[in-house]
């Protein structure tokens, strides 16, 4: 009973801190007589949603596709490549250093190139989100697959267990906490990647919209866009967290 009570208290406190931030924001703007161009009130920010010209839904959809698409690509390919690395050690020794070098490239610097190669649109921005979130997943997954207790390996070996059994029963489930810890980092990076892509060149998306309203000094709409981007990122992170709760036993989770 007390367990669920403290749980409830934790949620209540978390909601409270957010509400206090919004309230502080409101009072700061209203009583500080801050001009709307510098900082809109929460109410003005919400009000920006009513401007039909901004085509919020379309822009939300575009940015969401880029973030979720880029993240999904990174998760699928990241995990796949790490699996290949664990199966073929020579491949890891061959390709991992190359990946590390490639990861040194600031992904943002690739933006103009992406535009040259893929033109404006959702696709290059998805690729940007992918490029920036791919590496952490490879790295953590590869590490997780490597971490098998030597004695556990002996145990499987005395039973003449196959490599496949070792992989399915011990290696992969053991790597799950690492995979999720990589995906949590990747979720946050994917958002940054997509928005940077939109800043550099696009004709849709919340990042694109921000550049448009910057010209007209509609700060409220910029605030709204930032909040929406944050919400999309929060949704993705929440999904990853939920999946982790479902798949990974409490004790094994990497905080």
């Amino acid at each position: 009973m007390s367990g669920s009570n403290t749980q409830l208290q934790r949620y209540a406190l978390a909601v409270l801190s957010h509400l206090i931030l919004v309230a502080a924001w409101h009072f700061f703007v209203v009583y500080g007589e801050i001009p709307k161009i510098v900082m809109p009130s929460p109410y003005d920010t919400l009000h920006a949603l009513l401007v039909p010209n901004y085509r919020w839904l379309e822009n939300i959809a575009a940015t969401s596709i880029e973030i979720f698409g880029g993240f999904l690509l990174a998760a699928v390919f990241g995990i796949l490549i790490a699996l290949l690395f664990s199966w073929f050690r020579w491949l890891e020794m061959f390709a991992m250093p190359l990946l590390v070098s490639l990861n040194m490239i600031p992904k943002v610097a690739l933006g103009p190139l992406m535009i040259v190669w893929f033109k404006y649109g959702i696709w290059p921005n998805t690729l940007m989100a992918f490029a920036i979130s791919f590496f952490p997943i490879v790295l953590t997954t590869a590490r997780g697959l490597r971490e098998v207790e030597p004695d556990l390996l002996d145990l499987v070996r005395t039973l003449r267990g196959s490599r496949w059994q070792l992989f399915v029963k011990i290696q992969l489930p053991g790597a799950l906490p690492y995979i999720f810890s990589g995906m949590k980092v990747a979720a946050i990076l994917a958002v940054a990647g997509a928005i940077v892509g939109e800043f550099l060149g696009s004709e849709r998306g919340l990042g694109y919209l921000m550049l448009q309203v910057q010209v007209t000094l509609d700060t409220a709409a910029m605030f709204m866009a930032v909040i929406l981007i944050t919400l999309i990122g929060g949704l993705l992170y929440g999904i990853v967290l939920g999946l982790e709760r479902f798949f990974v036993v409490k004790d094994a989770r990497i905080q």
């Binding site: 207790e149 005395t158 039973l159 011990i170 799950l176």
Partner: peptide, 30 residues
């Protein structure tokens, strides 16, 4: 030798993600 050896180590080395009963079952699955 393939199935007549049981091993116990200094560390219990139970699989964290398996319940106790399923940990005990591991050799029979293999």
């Amino acid at each position: 030798p393939a199935r007549d050896i049981g091993m116990v180590f200094q560390q219990p080395l139970l699989l964290k993600w398996r319940r106790i009963i399923d940990n005990v079952m591991l050799p029979t699955e293999i």
